[in-house]
Design a protein around this nucleic acid. Structure first.
Lengths: 336, 336
DNA sequence: GTCCCGTACTATACCGGTACAGACCCGAGG
DNA sequence: CCTCGGGTCTGTACCGGTATAGTACGGGAC
């Protein structure tokens, strides 16, 4: 059978194609009676509704928002914090009738999602700011909101006060009396810049420098799972080991606690550990983690609000969400 | 400035629009020299590349695959198993130059993703089989692969041997000598059918029925986090409490262990607990979980292979992936 | 010289809709 | 009686590409 289009229905009912289009897309433009007849004919012919691709071309919008992520998408899903962010974004978009299209970084030159996938707007999430994908989006003129970055001037952004949170975390340890402090943070590619990692490092130093404390820094990649624990052990397995450690994430903090336990140290008696993010892991950990809370769901909502605003041509101010130190059981005064 | 299209470039260079199209999409169709000139003119005019929406209409393909999920998307992201599946799917699609579009269940009648979003194919994942979204996809004629379901005859599917895995789990407990066995499984909406939940239940009974064991069954929803633990406690806080429990998931198993601990019971000495999925939680748990392993990444790969095959009009056989019992430290012979 | 074929480019016909500017008809107001 | 306005429907002009079937031309085989 030939494909059913608006035209076939129009012919069948004896009206113009435009009227059939209106029957589906702008019901107030025609009489209810005629609309019924059209819908009946459509059902009879097996017409499902206006073709999304054709509609996208004619209307100039697709109904979906892209999420640009570079690096392996697996990481994004498997990390508790980014998964929660994605969840918040997708739910929020769904409420507004928008679908979410994940745009992986271009691997093959022949197909570049940031250049070749139709979207009405894009969120730029875990992304090397020098990524060519961002350039593609910009050249296409796709409205764009950057999350957890400050890619470039004039681009709308949603950020968390990473620096302030890190400062509070380090200050907390200083206030408890710690003087030998370690840092377990993210290892980044030489020329890649991880915005949160940099901001958090600045924040830690904001508190440590004035106290005259020179932290011992170790870095570890996200994966494999055991890497952070091994790195933490090298930090702790020495005579002048720190009495407290601030970590880039809750996962790193938990790895650090495990490393400490494996060395016979007790947290928080022998070692204080402070995480970041306040992910689901934090409260469930034993001992429960002192950490810096960020409102991931709010970040998602803000990002969606911002991109939707941009898509409606409303200029958007940069958003900076607060963080808050949550003191639980993994931090205490230094031993002795 | 007016929008730059193939035509503007064609006019500028003095060739036909088709030749410009070929310069971008089929480089072997024109001389290298002319192609260079065209690309140069395009760059000069600020042309980014063929418009994705227009291309989608003309070519009849969009370059993205939909993932239909109903229920809150958050759940899908926050559950370790489904997150790993999504990760596997998105990576695998990315390798083939396809983007992934998440299609939430229709909330608003006015915008129904399964009807209104352009995709070349769809994976149907966590979905009530009676969902109208599946009907929409089917009516549209979108190639469709169902994962962790058996929605209807003739639809390609990828499943895991849930029943066999559950049977092995229950048989393991029977073999250890357990006679009072509890089940902690998923609570589903009255008329919704959760395929894995049903299959696992069948599998448990496959092993328990021949042994003449009548299990005590309790059910709990996915969320909130504490619900499973509370339910498990009701199962364990009685005189004739089971000596072993099989669970719908590793998360439920861990909740059950917590409940046991809170009642002063030791796992596995007083109580054996067996999970399902072998998620990252399982090996990390204390004690490490005896559980049923499923290869989630393989499930993602199989799903992508299947949908890509269908999109190329190659009929697909149903796929059934194996499961395997992994015996770790949470199961032992019954006390006494 | 003629035939044949491959290379390079063009002409035409869609793909399946939507926006916008009328045209028509009818009842109400002046 | 004429005009005006609103509710309905139509006609036309796109949206920005791609597929396919050509045409024109140059060179090698015979």
């Amino acid at each position: 059978m030939a494909k059913v289009t608006l035209q076939s229905i129009a012919d069948r009912v004896g009206v113009s194609r435009m009227t059939v289009s209106n029957a589906f897309s702008r019901p107030d433009q025609l009489s209810a009676e005629l609309r019924e007849r059209i819908l009946a004919a459509a059902a009879e012919l097996g017409y499902v509704g206006p073709d999304p691709a054709a509609r996208a071309l004619a209307r100039g919008r697709t109904g979906s928002v892209g999420l640009l992520i570079n690096g392996s998408l697996s990481e994004a899903f498997e990390d508790a914090v980014s998964a929660a962010f994605l969840a918040s974004v997708s739910d929020e978009l769904a409420d507004r009738g928008l679908a979410l299209t994940l745009m992986p970084a271009s691997s093959d030159e022949r197909f570049v999602p940031s250049r070749d996938v139709a979207v009405d707007g894009a969120l730029v999430y875990i992304c090397d700011p020098t990524s060519s994908d961002i350039d593609w989006l910009e050249r296409r003129g796709v409205p764009m909101v950057v999350v957890d970055h400050n890619v470039r001037e004039g681009v709308a952004s949603v950020n968390v006060d990473d620096r302030g949170g890190a400062r509070a975390a380090a200050q907390h340890l200083v206030d408890l009396g710690h003087r030998r402090i370690g840092i377990v943070t993210l290892e980044t590619e030489p020329d890649a810049v991880n915005h949160p990692a940099r901001e958090r490092m600045l924040g830690w130093h904001d508190a440590l420098d004035p106290a005259g404390i020179e932290p011992t820094v170790v870095t570890t990649p996200y994966t494999p799972a055991g890497a952070a624990e091994d790195v933490a052990r090298t930090l702790l397995d020495r005579d002048d080991r720190p009495t407290a450690v601030v970590c880039f994430s809750d996962a790193f903090a938990i790895a650090t606690i495990r490393a400490a336990e494996s060395l016979g140290l007790t947290v928080p008696d022998d070692l204080s550990v402070v995480g970041f993010d306040d992910s689901v892991l934090a409260a469930a950990s034993r001992p429960p983690l002192t950490t810096v809370h960020q409102e991931v769901a709010a970040k998602g909502r803000a990002a969606v609000a911002s991109i939707v605003g941009l898509m409606a041509s409303t200029p958007q101010e940069p958003v900076l969400l607060p963080t808050e130190l949550i003191v639980r059981g993994s931090s205490a005064a230094p031993p002795g």
